[in-house]
Structures are given as C-alpha cells and as structure tokens.
Computed example of a mutant assay.
Amino acid sequence: CWLTYTNAQTHKIIMDNIDRAPMANGIIKGIGPRYCPSIETKLIRFPDKERHQLFLEPEGLHTNEVYVQGMSTSLPMDVQIDFLHTIPGLEHAKVMRAGYAIEYDCLDPLQLKPILELKKISGLFSAGQANGTSGYEEAAAQGIIAGINAALKVQNKEPLILKRSDAYIGVLIDDLVTKGTSEPYRIMTSRAEYRLILRQDNADQRLTPLGRRVGLVKDDRWERFTRKMAVINETVDLLKERKLNPNQETLKLLADNGIEEIRNTISLYDLLKRPDINYDKLKEIFGLPEINEEAKQQVEISITYEGYIKKQLEQVEKMKKLEEKLIPESIDYALVANLRDEAREKLADIRPISIGQAARISGVSPADISVLMIYLEQQKRIEETKNEL
C-alpha cells in the first residue's frame, strides 16, 4: 500500500460541487457508517483540516487496479476524475469504477430472536446487512448462525445461541437483538466485555465443540482438534509435575541459562509465568518434548496470563447463572407488579429469553431485574403447588 493526501486544490473542487453530492446536499437522509464517511462529509465535518490521509491499496497480485481508501464519495463522475487528478501519485490515474453513494435502511433487529428468527413469523430467519450491520464479516457471521438455526429448526433440534463469552458473533447478535441500532453496526473489540478469552489463538477451543454438536465439524477435523487438545493438556500436566528444588545443581543450571534464581520449590508451570521464559527455553534446558507451534502458543498464553483469565472466567460464570434463568415466552409483563413503566415497555417489546439478556436492555435497571426475578420465583412456586395438588 501507499500513502498520499488530499490538498487545498482537491478540497476546492469538492466544495465548488458540493451541491451535486447526495451525501451532503440532503437528498440522502439516512445515517451512514460512522467509520468510513465520504470525502465530502469529512470536508464539511472537519473544515479546519488542510488535508486528509488516503491509502492506495492494490486490489490483487495480478491486477493494476488500486483502491483509494478514504475517498468514498457521492459526487458525479466528472467531479471525481477532476479531484482525483489533484492528488499526488494520481495525476494520471484512470477510473475503473466510480465511487457511489449508499442510503442505508434495515429491518429493526429488535424484531429478531437471538437465533435470528423473526419473533412474529415462525420459520423466517433474517441475516446480513438487512439487520442493520455494516461490513462483510458481520453479514457472514449472521448468515452462518441463521443458516445453522434454520436447519436445526426443521430438524426439531435445540437451536445454537452463541453467548457473549463464546464468540464475537455472540456479542454482535446479542447487541443487535437486545439493544437495536440507530446506525450501521460494526463489531469492535471494545464492544466485548470478555475479550481476554475471545482470542484468535483459542477460537478452535471455544467453537469447534459447538460446530461438532450442530454437525459442521467432520471426523477428520474433530480428530485434529482432539489430538491438539490432548497435546496441550499433556504438556500442561507435565509442566505441573516437574518440580525444581533450590539446590546448588538447580541454581547453577538456572544461572548458566540466564534465569533468575528460585528460593522455594516450584514447578516448570510456575517458572513459565516469568516474562523472560518461554516453552522453547524450558524445553532446551529441561529436555521437554517438542510440540507444534499452535499448541505451544496456547500453552504459553494460558499459563502466562492464568491469573487474568481466571478472573474473567469467574465473571463469565456469574453471568452464566443469569443466562440460565430463562424467562417464559408467554410472560405478561403487565402482571409484574412494581416494574417501572419504561422497563415494562422495553421488556414487552424485546421479550428477552433470559434474565441475563434482560439485564443488558437499555432502560432496564438492576432494581427492575430484582423485581422480575422475584416475580418469576413466585410463579415457579405457584406452578409447583398446583402440580402437587
């Protein structure tokens, strides 16, 4: 990629023709994506900026096409050619395809269940940018979940709902169906409260068993996964078993390899928590078995960050208890005494499937959740008494 910038001449051409830009002249009224505004929107929003950064991104190894990142526009073709030729590096550029404007619209995702089925139309699933998201990955993420759940529904099997602690897909769908969206939604790490465990290196540990349950992981892939997990577990067990005593021989061995001395008996597992030590170093010094890079990475991460990961898993466990407290689909929130009107309205509209989801609805307070839990407990006891009679 290359880096270039707009300049005063670029800005003059754009502003002289701003009345011809639907993104700026009021023809398009919808809210666009927050993170990639058009160049004309940027000039209006940041009039003090003398230049705007552009990335020139090659479209592929076998083409001369280059994408101008940061220059999305709704201006007519003749204006686009004029202002592009004012940019350093693009003086003689030919336009393969013009930039164009998009006006966003979507279904209200609050109409959807967490399985991406419409609440009011059984068997109709919705996925993709139609649900209010922006971005191909977000669309694909919904597509696979909607497809899985449509297939499970016709087989009368339990649906697949990824929790916020399972995957970024879980965060994305929960945000959409619980909070809705007023602008094109894009998933970001900052939206996930459990991002310490939603890592790239452990995606297989989190999701392969779920994929296996719904029939998407075939035997060969499952075998590779279980073999890898066996290596990780055996390695962790070995590191815990191997103890080091602070005798002269051990202290000399550590000193010769540039490792700070130990004062008490510790395991290689605990030694690996030190920032200057990795598995390869321990393998070389103590004759540990060779393991593949993926397994090595997961062993090192799980041990080095064990304390932080443990705290996050405790948070997940607390939330899991709330997620397991299911709310009957038939509940009539009008009958729940002492709920605030706003909470009653939001709960009746969104119809959360669990106390955990209810607690994440904007406008539903912890006090409302307490009232709801008391009501559900009372209803449960009434039902139990009826059954006894």
Rank of each mutant, 00 (worst) to 15 (best):
G287K: 01
N25W: 11
D201E: 13
N156Q: 13
E388N: 14
P184I: 09
D82M: 14
I39N: 02
D82Y: 08
G70F: 01
T181W: 04
N202A: 07
R206Q: 10
A348E: 01
R199W: 03
G123P: 07
R351C: 08
A130V: 12
A359G: 05
Y67K: 10
R263H: 10
I309H: 10
Q312P: 00
K380C: 08
G143N: 03
R34M: 09
A367H: 09
Q155C: 09
L3S: 12
K120W: 00
Q205A: 11
K228D: 08
G135E: 01
E261C: 00
I173L: 14
L54G: 04
R191N: 15
L251F: 07
R51A: 08
I121T: 04
I187W: 05
K273N: 01
G356F: 05
K240R: 14
E293W: 00
L389R: 13
N257S: 10
K346E: 06
S267R: 06
T4M: 12
I309R: 15
N131R: 05
Y5T: 06
E329A: 14
G307A: 11
M77L: 14
I303H: 03
L210R: 12
Q379G: 11
K218W: 06
N149K: 03
R164W: 07
E290F: 02
L56N: 08
G132R: 02
A255K: 10
Y194L: 09
G258N: 11
Q379A: 13
N245Q: 09
E193N: 12
F286A: 11
L251M: 10
V177I: 15
E183L: 09
I187V: 13
L326C: 13
E249Q: 12
I161T: 11
L176F: 13
R20T: 04
L253N: 05
I144T: 02
Y5M: 09
I327P: 02
S267F: 06
N264R: 13
Q379L: 13
K179E: 09
D78W: 12
